[in-house]
Amino acid sequence: MVRLAKFLCCIPLRVGVILTGCLFGITDIIIGSFGWYMVAKNEFPDNVVEFFRTMDTATCVGCFAGTFYLLALNDLVLIYGAIREKHRFIGPWLLVNFVVLICTMVTALVSGIAIIRIAILSYCMFVVNSFYNELTEEDD
């Protein structure tokens, strides 16, 4: 099985996993907060209205904002798992973000920013999976 030994060539995997959790956690909180801000002001960009054209935009944006907060909570669990070196807390992050990766691939047709998220998320999942494998080998 191919796995990484370091995060970005010189940073230990554990630190890389913690940085990944922080990066995605902060990003998810910002995106979720921006979604709630749009719902509160009831003002949405044209591309968002077009994306949800057959549904109530405020409800959809609110659901997505709530989802991003749940993802931020999942990122917090990843950070805890990396700090405590407990693979049981890291595995769920991999499962949830695999689903997120698939969903992001669908939205890549709508947004160019999604392509950047796909690339970053794919690498970070590889890092987290490498650390997860390292922890599970120690348990065996």
Rank of each mutant, 00 (worst) to 15 (best):
S33G: 09
M105A: 11
L95F: 10
V127E: 03
I30G: 01
I26K: 12
D140P: 10
I31C: 08
E137K: 13
T107K: 04
I26R: 05
A5N: 15
V49W: 02
I30F: 12
A58P: 04
F52G: 01
T67E: 14
V127P: 00
V2Q: 06
R88Y: 10
D75E: 09
F24Q: 01
A40P: 00
G81Y: 11
H87W: 15
R84I: 11
G32F: 15
I90F: 06
F52Q: 05
W93G: 02
V96M: 11
N47H: 07
S122I: 07
G25A: 12
G66M: 15
P12Y: 09
I102K: 05
F7P: 00
G32D: 12
K41R: 12
V100N: 04
A58C: 13
G66V: 07
R14T: 13
P12V: 14
L23M: 13
L76A: 14
L76C: 13
C22S: 04
L71G: 02
L121M: 14
Y132E: 02
F52L: 05
I30V: 13
V61M: 12
L70S: 11
G16V: 08
C60G: 12
K41V: 07
V39D: 03
A114V: 13
E138P: 00
C22E: 03
F98V: 07
L78A: 09
V128F: 01
N47G: 01
I113R: 13
E43M: 07
